[in-house]
Design a protein around this nucleic acid. Sequence first.
DNA 1: ACCATTGAATTGGTTAAATCTATGCTGCGC
DNA 2: GCGCAGCATAGATTTAACCAATTCAATGGT
Lengths: 304, 304
Amino acid sequence: MLRFTLRQIEYAVTIWDHGSVAAASTRLGVAQPTLSAALAKLEQQMGLQIFIRHHAQGVSPSPAGLRFLTEARNLLSHAQDFQRGVVAAGSAVEGELSLASFATIAPAFVPPLIKGFMSLHPDVTLRMAEGTQTELYAGLRSGLHDVALLYAVDMAEEFTFTPLASLAPHVLLPATHQLAHLKRVPLAALKEDPFILLDIAPSRTYFTRILDSVGITPRIAFASPSLEVVRGLVGQGLGYSILITRPFGDHAYAGEELAVRPIAEDVEQGVIALAALKQLRKTRLVAAFESHCVQYFNTIGAAS
Amino acid sequence: MLRFTLRQIEYAVTIWDHGSVAAASTRLGVAQPTLSAALAKLEQQMGLQIFIRHHAQGVSPSPAGLRFLTEARNLLSHAQDFQRGVVAAGSAVEGELSLASFATIAPAFVPPLIKGFMSLHPDVTLRMAEGTQTELYAGLRSGLHDVALLYAVDMAEEFTFTPLASLAPHVLLPATHQLAHLKRVPLAALKEDPFILLDIAPSRTYFTRILDSVGITPRIAFASPSLEVVRGLVGQGLGYSILITRPFGDHAYAGEELAVRPIAEDVEQGVIALAALKQLRKTRLVAAFESHCVQYFNTIGAAS
DNA sequence: ACCATTGAATTGGTTAAATCTATGCTGCGC
DNA sequence: GCGCAGCATAGATTTAACCAATTCAATGGT
């Protein structure tokens, strides 16, 4: 158990600096007896006499007290530095921000987002992570991440969601497909085609829900958790797919040309949101990042 | 003003270590609501949420809280180290001891004293100083020295004195003096000789008091604050002196032979004592040094 | 030699803080 | 769904911090 308080240390060091209890009391804004009693108690708890009292001439440190006070001042500085750091972390936009992002969202949006944010707030260190929706939620719950960039589905009560953008899914066809010449492809026309599923939670349920909404029960030929593998399979002519994420250049990894077409039907859009734990009080840093995200997605006009 | 207490820090770190308020409360020996309230207050004062509460599953640090706790643990360790140091300084025989000594006492007694003490307590650092009686008293009063080795004269109420040895003064004559052949020299026989005075406070008053006690008003031919100068003057045949300190080999600096003789009359002895400030609570180190001094002077049989 | 001044300690009473016991509330596992 | 685990709240009590007024001791000026 600690036998002293920081306040006692602060008092003792101030008395040392002023060479007098009375002078220190005005400096600290407390009454002189308060200091006198606090000092006496500190000395008693430490079992060490710190000051020699000179009647009507203040006090001066004893030899042992001098060593005590020197170390005490170190400790006090440490405490003050600590507080400065904490106050800064809570009130200024600086420190460390842990951002997690859904795997298919990350490549397109995270780089420009953090570039913009870092240029606004150069003192911020960003820590990044990717994962499935389940991992992101677990990470928020456990305090691993401050915020997560994800699709606004499976939204539990315990999180707050700030909608950032609404993205339309598109149909992905081999360039050689007979419907590839259409500006907009009706899903109904693909009813009999083999379907290639991007199989990550929650994308899996989202895409099947879309097909269900237009009355299609897909014939799932392949399923892969990798976006690029799905695109490659489509490129090989093995079926069609529905995706939201659209990498630059409509070619698969191996180079096969792909046809990317809007869906003719009116289907549910994918809403990208920034999620955070509801019970967690927002730091200024998190608030700043959140508003930067909103502003960024407004700028690129992704919200439809 | 500091916005936290060491106790709050201690509580927060313990909660972190146990991952639970309840577990930490049993560990700390306080009730669970105490911790709950203390934590809530700390978070409020810091303007920062430190822990995420998981219902029925304890708590875990938030991202910002983790940084807070890491720094907080540092501060706590610092405080604990500090306390360990202070407790050790108060209770163990180690640390620093500031010893002042009267100039004519120092050369003969301080070296063997500190040699013996250091071999008993190797962890002690000794700081030494010399001075006149006035300077020694001032040094004790101001906290410059823990203890002072001096003659027990001018003993003010504010000091404690531990008598260590009682030393008889001796007469110092030129070897060629007509009384030099006597085993014991009566001061009365020197009534008309010129007197050479060691002129340091309080030696001056001590020696004149001795002469006064045997009915002599000395004819002071010379006075010097230096022991070796006095001995040299006697060696030159310029008079006699009375001294307590007796360097090895009865020769002056320049080599003249001196006759050192006991005083025939019964005169006041010089009492060497260890003085300390009465109002200053003794540390264990000071007490150990004091008893070592007593024991050392007993051993050499200097107390008569 | 006296007296005013300075500065620490003491006293008594008040307010704020820390802590306790008892109880309520909420999600998790069986 | 029901019990259990674990944090939060409420009310009461003890403890600590603080202040105003006073006392006491030593210094310095007249």
